[in-house]
């Protein structure tokens, strides 16, 4: 565990992740350009910005899914360029996607168990049939936390959009992550379901005291569920404020011009 390393403990106290001067290109285009961002250990940060601003790329860079061309990524006290750091960081990160990204033909329980695929003996997380009793119990606990324990045996494609996203959240939480990353978790939901998912999500994250970095197109969500709002445009940060201090109309202005 990271807690055995003194250096890791010191860094952890400071930040869940720290990006320093990162640059990133996609398809020959420069997407991020010398960007700095630090997310505190129990901080909830909303990332906003127009389509193509590089929000998804930034989230992916934090866990090493998008390779950076310059700068430094530290996550959960580890420099991502160090050997084995990427796997270790992914192991302690929970990721929630825009579309819930569940395996449709598998049960809800099997999908939550996929959260254990980074563990030793990962083959037992392929399906609920193979999983050890302890994992199954932990998965049921996570499902209960999102209010879906009674749907454990149902196939994932029988769920509504909001329920599926809650299962995706359970799948991320069963990993006992210290950092949760969510890429437009409500974009595929109707407004009511989106609010329900987002308030549940941020409540659980706050209760567990872990860091949350999420992107959203909904300014109200950004203000309601984050401690801090960061706006991205043209590969740079154009606004970084505590949610409580954001002026009316300030966020919307990011999207103009």
């Amino acid at each position: 565990m990271a807690l055995d390393e003194p250096r890791a403990v010191a860094a952890e106290a400071a930040a869940a992740c720290r990006l320093t001067g990162i640059a990133l290109s996609r398809g020959g285009r420069r997407v991020l350009d010398g960007l700095d961002l630090t997310v505190g250990a129990a901080e909830r940060v909303a990332l906003i910005g127009p389509n193509g601003a590089g929000k998804t790329s930034l989230l992916n860079a934090v866990v090493g899914l998008a390779p950076i061309t310059a700068g430094r990524v530290e996550a959960l006290g580890r420099d991502l360029s160090a050997a084995g750091a990427r796997a270790a960081v992914r192991g302690e990160t929970g990721y929630v996607f825009q579309r819930h990204a569940l395996v449709k033909r598998r049960t809800v329980l099997s999908n939550v168990l996929h959260g254990f695929l980074h563990r030793p003996g990962a083959w037992r997380a392929w399906s609920a049939m193979l999983a050890p009793e302890a994992w199954r119990a932990e998965a049921m606990e996570a499902l209960a936390e999102v209010g879906l324990a009674d749907r454990a045996a149902d196939r994932a494609d029988r769920l509504s959009g909001g329920q599926a996203q809650r299962v995706a959240i359970a799948r991320a939480l069963v990993r006992r992550p210290r950092l949760v990353i969510a890429d437009e978790p409500t974009a595929s939901l109707d407004p009511a379901a989106g609010r329900e998912v987002m308030s549940l999500f941020s409540r659980i994250v706050a209760k567990r005291g872990v860091a949350l970095l999420f992107t959203t197109h909904d300014m109200a969500d950004a203000l309601a569920y984050a401690d801090r709002v960061v706006a991205l445009k043209g590969g740079r940060i154009v606004l970084d404020r505590r949610a409580a201090e954001v002026m009316p109309g300030e966020l919307e202005a990011v999207f103009d011009g």
Partner: peptide, 15 residues
């Protein structure tokens, strides 16, 4: 999408 999700979770290619 599910493939990307499991990759992001640190699953091996075989996983």
């Amino acid at each position: 999408e599910p493939r990307e999700a499991l990759t992001a979770f640190g699953a091996s290619r075989f996983g």
